[in-house]
Structure formats: structure tokens, C-alpha cells
Amino acid sequence: MAELEDLLARRSLRARRVFEALEAALQGQGAAEIAPLRAALGALDYAAAATALTALAETLGLAKEKTA
């Protein structure tokens, strides 16, 4: 998740591959937050993706500092 956050900040297109790995690793957890994250990445709207990632982290009970 920290890697994804970094790639979003750097406007890296590798973020989408890292997202796919993250989605697979979560095995359905945070599904409600995963959908907007996937949509934002698909539209290359990285600001929205970063917001969705923060929401996902909160849902999963991961404090921001743990993902940084």
C-alpha cells in the first residue's frame, strides 16, 4: 500500500500493476473502497485514487503512518 501511495504521488503508470497485486492480496477485503480506487486508476485520476487509497487504508484499519 505504501508503494502504491508513492507511485500515485509520482504519477507512475506502474501504480496500476501494483494495484492489481494489492487487490489480489486483499482477497475481497475492502471491496467497497477497492471499486472507486480501480475506477480512478482506470481514468488516470490519481488525485481521486489517492483519496480512495486513504479510505481503503482506514477501512482496513491501517493508520496513515503505517502506509507511509
Binding site: R10, S12, L13, L44
Partner: peptide, 21 residues
């Protein structure tokens, strides 16, 4: 965005690709 997608698909395997709109 579609142009970024097309170009990144061509280059992504061999390069780190970032974008700006």
C-alpha cells in the same frame, strides 16, 4: 487519457512511465 494509455502500452514493458495531463 486514451493517448497516454496507447503510448504507455507501447513503452511500459521496457521503461518506467509517468504521465501528466
Amino acid at each position: 487519457v486514451s493517448n497516454i494509455e496507447i503510448i504507455s502500452a507501447i513503452l511500459e514493458d521496457d521503461h518506467e512511465v509517468c504521465f501528466a495531463t
